[in-house]
């Protein structure tokens, strides 16, 4: 019986792969990116963002999402290493990432949300080893849409909490704060 179920679910997974995937495309620094629609919780307009002091540039701040405090990552700063210019078209794409204690909502600040594209698996190619100015582990795959390549982002890498908070500590240390041990060594 359990074997049967396993077979069935394996079959489903195959079917999903063969199905045409839906992707949300958006612009960051005039470049198109996409994430799987399954990762996206919702898209919200830019409201009042509270800046959190002593954090690196890519942490844009926190927002109030129906009573919960949700951090917002500046994708431009994260991918392109310079802060985004917030315009009328700027949006926050809310995604859910897995952490040890469950899931956490994180907002991604993007310059503009474009559309939802259906991309057949045949049009998706593995990421090139070099040739982009973005860290290769951030790229899940490249999708060819109308002879233009769009980068499919690896959300769990781009928004890796371990890395984001770790870098936060380094920036913190640069701002003057040091961990206890570091202080002792010095």
């Amino acid at each position: 019986m359990s074997n049967l179920i396993r077979k069935e679910s394996a079959g489903n997974a195959l079917a999903v792969q063969e199905q045409v995937g839906q992707y949300l495309t958006f612009l960051v620094d005039k470049e198109s990116f996409a994430v799987s629609i399954l990762d996206v919780k919702e898209i919200i307009e830019i409201a009042n963002i509270t800046h959190v002091p002593l954090t690196p540039d890519y942490i844009h701040g926190v927002i109030n999402l129906r009573g919960n405090v949700v951090p917002v990552i500046d994708l431009c700063a994260r991918l392109k290493h310079h802060p985004a210019e917030v315009s009328k078209r700027s949006c926050i794409v809310l995604v859910e990432v897995e952490v040890a204690e469950g899931t956490q909502h994180i907002g991604m600040l993007v310059d503009e949300v474009r559309e939802i594209l259906e991309i057949p698996p045949t049009n998706i190619q593995p990421a090139p080893d070099f040739g982009t100015d973005i860290r290769t582990d951030f790229i899940r795959a490249m999708a060819r849409v109308d002879e233009v390549f769009i980068i499919l982002l690896a959300i769990n890498k781009v928004l890796s909490l371990e890395e984001l908070s770790q870098l936060g500590r380094i920036a913190d240390a640069q701002a003057g704060h040091t961990g206890e041990q570091a202080a002792l060594i010095n």
């Binding site: 002091p53 942490i59 926190v62 405090v69 956490q104 908070s165 913190d172």
Partner: peptide, 11 residues
């Protein structure tokens, strides 16, 4: 504030 900010000492 969540895991993201847990290393932040002053908040």
């Amino acid at each position: 504030l969540g895991k993201l900010f847990e290393k932040l000492k002053c908040i």
